[in-house]
């Protein structure tokens, strides 16, 4: 066979190579020691000297021709592979892999974080306080003297017969502890667990979470309280929420209010707002002068407002949770529904 035929045969085989592996084998065969090129090169030393030059050149030409053919076919095959890949055969968009396992944060944590973020941005201190609390902080210093109905053992868990130690019934004692340590003016919130002596059902729980807020400064007014609460609600619900204040009595504030927010779930009455379009959201008021004085703050110079947010209630409202017992029940089927 002449060299030309050999080359044509080789080019034909290259063109027929069906995939990259076949092409790689062919490359080894053609360009290798025993291949077409190798044989030509091997013949060169045995040629008479004048023919060696032309034979060498011919071999180089052959090598160049084969290499070019191989590269071209490789490019063609690569193109074909890509095209095949792009056909995406066998893809089923409705066939997912097993789900990625996830973790979750408790809804109370989530709502607390949201509020803490809002209040931190307004310069509030975030404080913590004990769940097992002295009677002084939980009641006495908050203008709830002995024999006040709020102290009934129907409402309060007592830790000793003398009534010196209780499970705190609200997060308000933290504000007293704070006032003792801090010099006004200040702004603070204290989230935490609280306890009421109560039998549990879908809407009652003896252990729940609250967040107390306190601002003490010069000439703090009801207007400031309203403004703060509206800012808070904008932060929680992401839109303008109407609020209304109505009289409410709590011994540690004077005047005291209940703050209702316009129901965010309906226009004309629903289950959540019991058909009233208003949701009772938080008790609040101007700090009673006796409470300021009990904490060593001169009530003729300083005034303030306080509010108590029900974290459990807010968590239930924002996620539509219908049974308060889920919150502390530790059921994964419940917990898993919250992201982190």
């Amino acid at each position: 066979m002449d060299k030309q035929t050999n080359l044509e045969n080789a080019q034909a085989r290259i063109a027929e190579a069906s995939d990259q592996a076949v092409l790689a084998d062919l490359e080894r065969e053609l360009l290798g020691r025993d291949g077409l090129l190798g044989q030509q090169l091997k013949e060169i030393p045995s040629l008479p000297p004048p023919e060696r030059g032309p034979a060498g050149r011919a071999a180089n030409e052959l090598k160049a021709a084969l290499t070019a053919g191989l590269l071209a076919r490789a490019a063609e095959l690569a193109e074909t592979d890509l095209a095949a890949d792009r056909e995406g055969i066998g893809f089923d968009a409705t066939l997912p892999a097993p789900p990625v396992e996830r973790g979750s944060l408790h809804p109370i944590t989530k709502v607390t974080r949201k509020l803490v973020q809002i209040f931190s941005s307004m310069g509030y201190h975030i404080l913590d306080g004990p769940e097992v609390e002295l009677d002084w902080y939980n009641f006495e210093a908050l203008n709830i003297p002995a024999d006040h109905p709020a102290r009934d053992s129907q409402d309060t868990f007592y830790c000793d017969e003398q009534g010196r130690l209780v499970l705190r019934t609200h997060t308000s004692p933290v504000q007293v502890r704070a006032m003792e340590r801090m010099a006004p003016p200040f702004r603070l919130v204290c989230p935490g667990k609280v306890f009421r002596h109560e039998n549990t059902d879908a809407t009652h729980e003896h252990t729940f979470h609250q967040m107390e807020g306190l601002v003490v400064g010069k000439d703090i007014s009801v207007g400031h309280l309203v403004g703060t609460m509206k800012t808070l609600l904008r932060g929680i619900f992401g839109k303008e929420i109407d609020v209304r204040l109505r009289p409410g009595h709590f011994p540690f504030v004077e005047p005291g209010f209940e703050l209702d927010a316009r129901c965010v779930f309906c226009e004309s009455g629903c289950r959540v707002c019991k058909g009233t379009c208003w949701i009772e959201l938080l008790p609040c008021g101007l700090v009673h002068p006796k409470v300021l004085e009990a904490a060593g703050i001169d009530s003729s110079e300083w005034s303030g407002f306080a509010f108590g947010l029900g974290l459990s209630r807010l968590a239930m409202l924002s996620h539509g949770i219908d049974d308060v017992r889920h919150l502390l029940g530790g059921d994964l089927r419940f917990l898993e529904q919250f992201s982190c």
Binding site: G223, V226, G227, R244, E254, H288
Partner: peptide, 21 residues
């Protein structure tokens, strides 16, 4: 303060404008 509460509630808290700290 007790009297201030009386004035406030009869004036209606809803009539008190929002203010910022």
């Amino acid at each position: 303060m007790d009297l201030i509460e009386e004035v406030g509630r009869l004036y209606r808290y809803g009539n008190i404008p929002e203010r910022h700290l």
